[in-house]
Amino acid sequence: MLARRIIPCLDVAGGRVVKGVHFESLRDAGDPIEQAARYDAQGADELVFLDISASHEARQTTLDMVGRVAESIFIPFTVGGGIRAVADAGAALRAGADKIAVNTAAVRDPALVSRLAESFGTQCIVAAVDVKQTGGRLAVMVNGGREETPLEAIGWITRLQALGAGEILLTSMDRDGTGAGYDLPLLTAASAAVSIPVIASGGAGELAHLAEAFEAGAHGVLAATIFHFQGSTLPEARAYLRERGYPVRP
């Protein structure tokens, strides 16, 4: 039996953890190494590190930081942001990542997902999908949420699975940073469309939201605001979920 996963997310820009609302109005949320070690000590099931600045110039700085994060934790660790080629992914994995996340680059070049899966195995490839409700459709957004694509979320997720993604990190931009809860209809539709794990992201504001996401079919829940700023701790989250019968680690 697999435990449901609680995954703190570190959005990193300029060497600091940041967190915004709808991908904007970023607030400082501490030092990445300290935060990673703290979440590991609290029993996080995994950690996701997204370099949201991801400029070419900053790649080496990011890799150094990935290496230092990897040295301070004993849990699986996903790195995303600016991975555009197999070589970028290889560099992140050598720096200590266990999985790599691709988003914009997968939309621009869907075959990249297959090349990554062939090079490193499907278990290594997280397809990150940012979704925004716009004009009555669930649009896939890229470039840090700044650019709308013609892709429909559910169709794109299904395609990502066929291309070789090992899991889907599904972020609702509409809910991001709001604390209003995950986008449950989106999660339900996505979980029904693919057999690979779907990780819910965007909107967790209280512990009940984590349970709602599992109920909607998520295998894991990503959260930032709730753990960075709102005082909920991972042990509290696990206790809450265990009391309600969800399989979580002790």
Binding site: M1, L2, A3, R5, G166, I196, P197, H219
Partner: peptide, 11 residues
């Protein structure tokens, strides 16, 4: 029939 690889925290 479940997804392979088997990935995650297993009891």
């Amino acid at each position: 029939g479940l997804p392979v690889p088997h990935v995650g925290w297993a009891q």
